[in-house]
Amino acid sequence: MNNKVFLNRFLILLLLPLTFSCSKRNLGYFSNYGDEKLLTEDITLITTQPIIQPGDLLQITVSDNNPIAAAPFNKINFKEENNENASSNVQDGYLVDQNGIIDFPVIGRIKIGGQTKANAKISITNLLTNYLGNPIVSIRYLNYKVTVVGEVKNPSTFLVPSERINLIEALSMAGDLTIYGKRENVMVINESNGVRTVSHLDLNDKAILDSPNFYLKPNDIVYVEPVKARKDQSSLTRSNISLVLGVISAASLILLNINR
């Protein structure tokens, strides 16, 4: 065997691990839906309202047939606009404390933690009937947010003004998964009533559309795990990379000299 043949085989053996490391992966979503041109199926997932938790910031407005009578129950500050003399009303938020309690004008401390918005509206409305003829209560989250981290293009924390977001929408806001994102194991971390729940969802499987964790709750964390190739890539040190490149460069120089 001459030197040229030996070096050719040496280079092939050196590059084989790189070739086999690139295994075929399924980068699609809901892959088991098949190739049907039109598919109709019943929606079985019933979404539930989030539970009010300590740390939630709520906008609560009260209206009545008599606006003057309702005014003391609305927490209003007057904020001067930048570079303008005019003022505008800015609704302050009610911060739910660690005991699930808010400080409400006139009424005082009200416990709404552990309730849904619908139940909290009923609780506050019942208290207001002692003061108003026909009270109407509206509640909105001011800090409804979800966090998306891991192998996505733009990891960040996102506010959700609509107070309704599913996993696909959250991933879209984060710029979608990178090619290194492990679609078979997306984690959703939720903390509620002192309990932490970690769910593992498979984006390749259409079953996630019916998962109770498909619609995210306030303060949920979505974590996209990197595939093994990404982990292996990160674990390589600069010295190892330099060593491999050095061997390839040396072999290439020898091969060029032989070919002359």
Rank of each mutant, 00 (worst) to 15 (best):
V5D: 09
P218Q: 05
Q91M: 10
L7G: 05
R183M: 04
S88Y: 12
P155Y: 05
Y223A: 05
T48I: 06
T116L: 02
L142D: 00
V62W: 07
I52D: 03
V247P: 03
E80N: 09
T47F: 00
S156P: 02
T147F: 05
N190V: 01
L128F: 03
V137P: 04
M187W: 07
L14V: 13
R164Q: 07
N77Y: 13
E184H: 04
I179W: 02
L45G: 09
G246Q: 02
P17T: 10
L203V: 05
F158I: 11
L159F: 09
V195M: 13
Q91I: 15
I189A: 08
I139L: 08
N134T: 13
P155C: 04
T129E: 13
L253M: 14
L128S: 05
A251Y: 06
F158Y: 15
S88T: 12
L127N: 09
F6S: 03
I189L: 12
V195Y: 11
L39S: 07
R183E: 01
S199V: 07
N240P: 00
G150P: 01
Q233F: 10
F214V: 15
Y131Q: 02
N143Y: 08
E184P: 04
S234Q: 15
T47K: 07
Q91V: 15
C22G: 06
V106K: 14
L15N: 08
L127W: 02
P54A: 07
V62Q: 03
K217T: 10
E163D: 08
I221P: 01
N66K: 09
L132I: 11
V160H: 10
L132Q: 13
I122W: 06
K145E: 15
